[in-house]
Structure formats: structure tokens, C-alpha cells
Simulated scan of single mutants.
Amino acid sequence: MKLPPVDPARLDEEWRADQDVLANLRENGDQSDIPRPVDVSFRGSPDALDDLADAAEELGFEVIETEPSEDGEPWLFLQRTQTSDADAIKALTIICLQIEAMFGLEYDGWGCVAQTGLTH
């Protein structure tokens, strides 16, 4: 599947937001080289979300769930396992912005749990 190019201004906007999340992870003792599930979310028309859900595996993601919203545009949550180092997160953001453009959706960011390497 050929993904479209990313708008550089949109990437800059998302990358600034990513920096805050990465800083928060570091503050919580995250070891960025430990692979972990990373969730991403998209919002849009049910048909576009269905199309993305059908293509998720080919794009390297697993479908987690769809959540309804009050305004009729539901959310689709996808997940993949990866590290949280800056290069890996920037690559994730780029593919998510490509997905946003290709499927006519709104990308709403990513999230994961800090991995400290400690077991409780």
C-alpha cells in the first residue's frame, strides 16, 4: 500500500505535541528501548474507520476497539508494539499522518505506559 506524503506543517505540529508526551514518559522513568504496546486513535466517518480497520494489519497495527461519540464521528483505536525512543515515535507519527490523509480521518495522537524495566 502506497501512503501519501505528509504535510510538513502538520508533522511539526504533531511532533511538538509528541515532545511533551516523551518528556512525561522520561519523567516517569521510561526506558525508551523497551518495546511496549503503543495505542493510536483516529476519528472520522464510520465508513472511513471501517476501511482503516480493514487495512490495519497491512499497515502494521492491530484493531483494539471502536468507541462511539456524541457527535456521530466515532473513534478507532489501533495498537502496535514498538519502542518509545524519539526516532520510533517520529516514524509512528509519520505513518499515522499518512493514514489520516489516505483515509480522510483525524489522527488524535498516541499513548503508552512508561516501561521502567522494574517488575512489581
Rank of each mutant, 00 (worst) to 15 (best):
K2D: 12
K2G: 02
P4T: 12
P4F: 07
P4Y: 07
P5Q: 05
P5D: 12
D7P: 02
D7G: 08
P8C: 02
A9P: 05
R10A: 09
R10M: 01
L11F: 15
L11Y: 09
D12H: 15
E13G: 01
E14W: 00
R16T: 07
D18N: 06
D18R: 07
Q19N: 10
D20G: 15
D20R: 15
D20E: 15
V21G: 05
L22E: 12
L22F: 11
A23L: 15
A23M: 14
A23N: 14
N24S: 13
L25Q: 06
R26D: 15
E27F: 06
G29P: 14
G29Y: 08
G29F: 00
D30A: 07
D30P: 14
D30K: 00
Q31M: 07
I34P: 01
I34L: 15
I34M: 09
P35F: 04
P35E: 07
P35T: 00
R36W: 07
R36D: 03
P37L: 11
V38M: 10
V38T: 08
V40D: 06
V40R: 09
F42P: 06
G44W: 02
G44C: 03
S45T: 13
S45K: 03
S45W: 04
A48P: 01
A48M: 03
L49A: 01
L49M: 08
D51K: 06
L52I: 05
A53E: 15
D54I: 05
A55G: 05
A55E: 14
A56P: 10
L59R: 04
L59N: 03
G60D: 08
G60R: 08
G60C: 11
F61W: 10
I64R: 03
I64D: 13
I64E: 13
I64V: 15
I64N: 09
E65T: 13
E65S: 12
T66E: 11
E67W: 11
E67C: 06
E67T: 13
E67K: 15
P68Y: 12
S69P: 06
S69F: 01
G72Q: 03
G72M: 06
E73A: 09
E73F: 04
W75R: 07
L78T: 05
L78S: 01
L78M: 05
L78Y: 04
Q79K: 00
R80E: 09
R80A: 05
T81I: 06
Q82M: 09
T83A: 05
T83W: 03
D85Q: 11
A88L: 03
I89M: 06
K90W: 04
A91H: 14
T93Q: 11
T93G: 06
T93L: 05
I95G: 02
C96P: 07
L97T: 05
L97A: 09
L97H: 14
Q98Y: 10
E100W: 00
F103D: 01
F103T: 05
G104N: 06
L105A: 01
E106M: 10
E106G: 07
D108V: 02
G109M: 13
G109L: 08
W110P: 00
W110E: 03
G111R: 08
C112A: 15
V113W: 13
V113Y: 12
V113C: 13
V113N: 11
A114I: 10
T116C: 12
G117A: 04
G117D: 00
G117R: 05
L118W: 06
T119Y: 12
